[in-house]
Amino acid sequence: MTNRLYDLVKESRSNNEALETVIELFEPKLKKSLYMTNPNDREDLAQELKLKMISYITEYDVDAIPGFWEIKEKTDKARKKGY
């Protein structure tokens, strides 16, 4: 599961099917968010949120996630500064 989402989001930039799967994964959260507004506007909100999600997912910088060793180096550096 952990790896699946990672790959799906990476793929979403070029593959619409992957993008759709990611959006579907967030469907429960989206439904919950709809209660923030009155019943008449919920359909509009759902559409709005999906639109936002598309841009968030496709523009998410997957490679900006720091790696295991990167975090280790950072803590090492911070420790050195402390001394």
Partner: peptide, 8 residues
């Protein structure tokens, strides 16, 4: 999602 809903 939450903040966008609030904003909307």
């Amino acid at each position: 999602l939450y903040f966008n809903a609030v904003h909307f």
